[in-house]
Write a protein that binds this DNA or RNA. Sequence first.
DNA 1: GTGGTCTAGACCACG
DNA 2: GTGGTCTAGACCACT
Lengths: 142, 142, 142, 142
Amino acid sequence: MVQSKGVKKMFHINGASGKAIYEQIMEQVKEAVFKEYLKPGDSLPSVRKLALTLSVTPNTVAKAYQLLEKEKIIVTIRGKGAFIAKNISYEMDLEKLNRIKEDIRGSLVEMKYLGFDETETIKLIQDIYVDLEGERNGNHRN
Amino acid sequence: MVQSKGVKKMFHINGASGKAIYEQIMEQVKEAVFKEYLKPGDSLPSVRKLALTLSVTPNTVAKAYQLLEKEKIIVTIRGKGAFIAKNISYEMDLEKLNRIKEDIRGSLVEMKYLGFDETETIKLIQDIYVDLEGERNGNHRN
Amino acid sequence: MVQSKGVKKMFHINGASGKAIYEQIMEQVKEAVFKEYLKPGDSLPSVRKLALTLSVTPNTVAKAYQLLEKEKIIVTIRGKGAFIAKNISYEMDLEKLNRIKEDIRGSLVEMKYLGFDETETIKLIQDIYVDLEGERNGNHRN
Amino acid sequence: MVQSKGVKKMFHINGASGKAIYEQIMEQVKEAVFKEYLKPGDSLPSVRKLALTLSVTPNTVAKAYQLLEKEKIIVTIRGKGAFIAKNISYEMDLEKLNRIKEDIRGSLVEMKYLGFDETETIKLIQDIYVDLEGERNGNHRN
DNA sequence: GTGGTCTAGACCACG
DNA sequence: GTGGTCTAGACCACT
């Protein structure tokens, strides 16, 4: 139960962020895996428990878990629960890649309108990576 | 009629992209400004004309234009048309910056799940910049 | 349902006032907040319900709500409803201030042509404040 | 021809201000009268001349003049031109008064959302009066 | 011709 | 249930 004591702090929902709640859950599971806060084989909170914690309907959590399973990030086992996939598949999905590239392209143009040129924007992106990696290093010994 | 001959190729809609049509229009206007396809003072296609070109209703184009006006990218004059703002404001908007940073953060994590590490992702971002800048160089000498 | 019993009397539309319906809705929401009829966190009537009450299309109400959200007066949450923003931002917007000052300037000159001099006009403005504040005092003790 | 040398500087149009051009012309004539820049009996520029000066169509100027005549601010004499009315009628128009009061009411609420309370707003209104009166005193000796 | 607003309906995503 | 988006068409004000 690696995650049991951290559930409340690990997931947090912003109802007014415009983003769908199930997407926020998905992103946070992914970020937790990225930071190795959750490792392959670790169990996730049950649908009901997480729903209670976040004060959302179980439906919403279930949707997030189903989509995460379709992306091969987690596996769910009937009667046991949901777990981080043992071998997370870094499978190339060209369609998805193109969608993300479009997203990034849009973000870069937006940055321009805030006064950030290429150099500044890439600096900011590297900072985000430092941020992501930093939290990872804080959670395990290597 | 600075832009008149380029309208058909400048704007294109992807009905299955998940993104709202009016958002796609907004992004493409912004990109056109970024690439200096459209310069301050240039006129945009009329709401009706662009609606015909894209086979959408004038309402959808009007919504895009109205939001662009709110963002100070264009100005619209009743009975005359819509034009790229003379002084596009590169104003700092901390709230918007944070929203975009969250977007980028999400995209970076997604890239990770497609197997792209930091170096590869930044390479890809630089490619996008080359793409954006490249088309700009085609339109003026500097 | 803080506002549920007051919806019918709180909002009223004047079809012949020259002002757009969505602007009238926006103004009335703002006035309701000013008078503390609606307090931060209170829910607004749903788009459909208010549309029915006012006999306008949901589109018109939705437009008002979306613009109010852009102005940070309310927040909307998909599938849940619209709510008065917790921390309404009294942020200084010089451009908006100048626009309002121009409006007031115009109104003052108009008052002159109706025979009201400065003293009389300011008296009338104070009356409007009394009106606005008066209704507020009816809703809480201070 | 009191106004002949001042026409270019007296009238100025902002095509992107949202306000209709004919309304801007009307307001500026009224303000000029208010400031006694234009006095009863003074001639206004001809429709064609002002249209040229402002780079608008004569139609637009003519509309402004017609409405000013309906408000008894000016009189037009066929073949001679337009003149400031000798006895500007400060006639009470209740309907118009109510419309202006609604405008002011709206402006006051907007000021609130910019952080101006009653005292500050009235201070600002008095400043506008000072501004209007000031320019008046600069243009004639009394 | 232009943009601005509105209606009456529809479908979708979300909770 | 909620809000978000879109269509197809209309009328209006302005230039």
